[in-house]
Amino acid sequence: MKKTKTSYLLRGTPSILLVLGAGFVMASSKDIRAAIGMGVAVLLSMLLSSIVVSAIHKIIPNYAKLPVYVLIITGFVTLISMLMQAFVPEVVDMLGVHLAALAVSAVVYRDAEEVADHNGEVKSIEVALVTGVFFTVIMVVCSLIREVLGNATIWGKEIAFLQDYKISGLVSAFGGYLVLAIVLAVINKVTGLHHHDEKEDN
């Protein structure tokens, strides 16, 4: 149990955070517009909440930290989604409930909790930026594969020569898992960052 706690604290590398954010990554990678919209929302909500959390973490009693942080993130997600609704409503329609669910996404609040809480503002902004950009890139890569090969469109525009070769399974829920798994495996291979066997932690 002690070790599990330690492993939470080790979550500086964004790739491990992906476990927690896998849900919205898959949900928003059907379409590149959705992926970019979600990426911006993740980035902004992490950034703003990190700033606020690192500013107020000293006055919030320990036992109330988690719920308060979640609510702060929710507040920012609400504001961001209102702005998105006003300016990019089609992206909000594509993301649907997942945009709101970002508020309670573990990736954002654990980031706030563990990074902003224990580090200074500068460090937490840095982490938020890195994580946000990382998530955006992953989502864009996945969405490119899924949208182009699965739906034969890009940015909502039809790609004529691919129309007869759609792999429609890629835009289904299963496609999300498959593509994300392969993309991560390729990243692992290329960067040489093999995930350590989790069993050792237990």
Partner: peptide, 21 residues
């Protein structure tokens, strides 16, 4: 090696998804 960790977790979950779908 490169599939260890999250990728294989995702594929495992994906198999359940496939069954559900």
């Amino acid at each position: 090696a490169s599939f260890r960790g999250l990728p294989i977790s995702l594929l495992t979950a994906g198999m359940i998804v496939l069954a559900l779908l």
